[in-house]
Amino acid sequence: MISFPLSVLLIPYAGIIAIILFFVFINIKNLARYRAEDVISFIALLIFLIGLFVVGYFSYQYLSPINWTESISITLPSIKVGI
């Protein structure tokens, strides 16, 4: 039987979110570099950042009530070896 805290699930989650944030940064950089003086670009960026904030807010709302320190156990299947 293996026991580990539920917060172990947050490690890959954090890794994936870091990759997503990297893409966010690259997209904003591309927009700033190639569309510096454009109202539509500015509005699109604003909508994008608001949407990102909304996703982050609701993620926090749904994930924060979870007790991440709770220990979870997984029972490994037993292997019988016949000699």
Binding site: L6, L9, L10, Y13, I16, I17, I20, F23, V24, N27, A44, F48, G51, L52, V55, G56, S59, Y62, L63, I66, W68, E70, I72
Partner: peptide, 25 residues
């Protein structure tokens, strides 16, 4: 479920973040 429920929530959070970023892209 005490494991699947948080895992599903994490998955949905990642999914919506990724879809939103790809939409912008």
């Amino acid at each position: 479920h005490n494991i699947w429920h948080p895992a599903v929530l994490l998955g949905i959070s990642v999914y919506y973040s990724a879809v939103w970023v790809f939409l912008f892209a």
